[in-house]
């Protein structure tokens, strides 16, 4: 409501302005806070393939004996390299069918057709998103940056198994790798 004297009015106005300005500042900060929150959310839920860019520690023999022989899951491997580079990145076994719980090796090659040494980092992504939680890798070239000499072709092995707790409705999944150059700007982070 309107105040009688204009000083009191001024004071009352300033109080609300200060509070609203605080809300504005907080919401600006919240916009940036969404970035780490998004990471935490993806880590917790396994969405977005965050969890598959690191080796699974604490692997017990138990995990591997529980092979679920009753079903097979189809896994497709897709490989891209970022446009504008002279790399050939391919999956040697583009499709494999595995029993959950069974350890499997697949091979990838990266060929550097230029004459300069390349430093690259592969970033994985898995779909459907929730399948990421059930894909366990013990060895992967995507855990580290890789150095590929000029005119060289390198073969990498990726070792993984699927958790036998993988939901029954997931019978097919795709693991996509994108190969990026590592330079000053892309301080590729490995979780």
């Amino acid at each position: 409501m309107l105040k009688r004297d204009s000083n009191a009015q001024q004071k009352a106005n300033n109080k609300i302005v200060a509070r609203l300005a605080l809300v504005v500042v907080c919401m600006f900060a919240f916009g940036f806070a969404l970035v780490p929150l998004y990471d935490v959310f993806c880590d917790l839920t396994g969405l977005n393939g965050r969890s598959i860019q690191r080796a699974d520690a604490g692997l017990t023999a138990d995990d591997l004996t529980q092979v679920d022989n009753n079903r097979k899951v189809k896994l497709e491997f897709v490989s891209f390299s970022k446009a504008g580079h002279q790399w050939r990145f391919s999956a040697l076994e583009p499709v494999v069918r595995v029993h959950p719980g069974e350890m499997q090796n697949v091979r990838f090659t990266i060929e550097n057709t230029s004459s300069e040494t390349a430093f690259v980092q592969a970033i994985p992504s898995v779909s459907p998103g929730q399948a990421g939680l059930y894909l366990h890798k013990t060895e992967c070239f995507c855990f580290e940056q890789q150095k590929i000499e000029g005119k060289q072709k390198v073969e990498f092995v990726m070792r993984f198994y699927l958790d036998s707790a993988l939901p029954k409705d997931i019978s097919q999944m795709t693991l996509a790798y994108t190969l990026y150059a590592v330079d000053g700007n892309t301080t590729a982070r490995v979780n």
Binding site: F28, G31, F32, K82, Q121, Y180, N185
Partner: peptide, 24 residues
């Protein structure tokens, strides 16, 4: 303010080498 944050992130990703939206 959230929109302001988003355009700021685009600006720094494009010109100042941050990677808010860059998978690499």
């Amino acid at each position: 303010p959230v929109l302001a944050g988003a355009v700021t992130m685009v600006l720094t990703d494009k010109f100042f080498g941050t990677s808010f939206f860059d998978a690499a």
